[in-house]
Design a binder for these strands. Structure first.
Lengths: 236, 236
DNA sequence: GAGTGGTCTAGACCACCTG
DNA sequence: AGGTGGTCTAGACCACTCG
């Protein structure tokens, strides 16, 4: 049995996912929520604070609590043109699946250390290319140990988002990301994918995501073309 | 007048800074703190949660609250500075001040947009090179708008750490970091500083730190040699 | 002035940890 | 068994926002 504030927090989270509350909408006030669910306002506040912490809502004193869909999403990188490092211009980002999710077995060389359970389970692999204003900017390889993720390969992604799929279909949240970054020269293969000259500098990063599910980590390997765009990220 | 939970939180924070509580020490229990300060346990918990959020302490159910100044795996490392990022490895990190803190006036080209107040104030500039196992790996340029930071240029850093200096001497905490990253070829000057061949890939990143002081941002420009070391960061 | 979130009190019971 | 943090109740007053 989960504590009531977690229940309420999940409850509201689902309502946000399902579209009952949209970006910018105001939630019922804390007093209303406490009456609705028959719990104290203190507990309601605890639930709302969870949502704030995870970036689902935003509170404004004297006004209310508002849904902010843009959650300070961990792991999501955005791109910015050099000319406007400062301004938040709208670059259109598209994602193209290059290799659809499929089950594979680990080979001996992997960039992070794996547990026995992970090694035995094999992994779900997929590969995507991101485009910013129709230019390829990033190749992302994802590795998910195949631990209790039924139908992952056969079902489509939720709103084309890997993280939303994890959240909504499996209740998996990303808690933490370890990131190991280096600059390197583009290999011929990467140069083709990213539309640049071989030997030019690209960014290569390894990532290890910690999840709320015990023993489940997700791994990524990302190659970025930064000739025209910065990779931008926000840490809070 | 600040709320009591902030007062208590600051109070404990100072005790950690001043060495009354050291890394790993247990704080008085919540009941003791509430009696000591004549406030409710709810309020004490609120204060402690602030400290947890900012990575000063760690709570263990059934045991107590413990000081963790050396944030092990706990978040926010990415903007705690280079030495913290690598703190849990065996790599020895040294920092060398290349240009000591000095007052400068902005020129026209700066990578982030500045407010009028920032432009008028000028900035404190300093430049450091980081070494990992005696090899240069990063050149960091720091720009701080000169807004009410008395004696910054004349006083030495606290424990050689810029961020600790901000916290302890000025009560400034970093709330958020925006990071804009690209890979590029090393210029001749950078190649010399970083001990590599000109033209080899290096990482260049711009950073904008948001602080708890209204209108105060801190800016950085970092050049990294990643031939032998990854840049590692953890974020939560 | 009515509604909102922010702070705070004075209790209570629970699960967890240790001696 | 006794102490610790985790959860929760049923109230209260405040500062802020908006009509």
């Amino acid at each position: 049995m989960q504590p009531r504030y977690i229940q309420l927090s999940n409850n509201i989270k689902e309502q946000i996912f399902s579209g009952i509350y949209n970006d910018g909408d105001m939630l019922p006030s804390e007093n209303e929520l406490s009456q609705l669910h028959g719990i104290t306002r203190v507990t309601v506040r605890q639930a709302l604070n969870e949502l704030v912490k995870n970036g689902y809502i935003e509170k404004r004193k004297g006004k209310g609590s508002f849904v902010c869909q843009k959650h300070k999403s961990l792991g999501l990188l955005s791109f910015k043109g050099f000319s406007d490092v400062l301004a938040h211009t709208d670059i259109k980002v598209k994602t193209k699946m290059i290799v659809k999710p499929e089950l594979r077995t680990w080979d001996d060389t992997f960039f992070y250390k794996l547990s026995k359970a992970e090694k035995l389970s094999g992994y779900i692999y997929f590969e995507r290319v991101r485009h910013a204003d129709d230019e390829p900017v990033m190749l992302e390889k994802t590795y998910i140990p195949n631990l209790n993720l039924p139908r992952f390969c056969s079902r489509p992604f939720v709103q084309d988002s890997f993280f939303k799929t994890l959240q909504q279909n499996y209740g998996i949240e990303i808690l933490n990301v370890q990131q190991d970054i280096r600059a390197r020269e583009a290999s011929k293969k990467m140069a083709v994918f990213l539309g640049i000259t071989p030997g030019k500098p690209i960014i290569h990063m390894y990532r290890k995501y910690t999840t709320n599910r015990n023993e489940l980590f997700i791994y990524g390997s990302l190659y970025c073309n930064t000739e025209k765009y910065f990779i931008s990220s926000n840490f809070t």
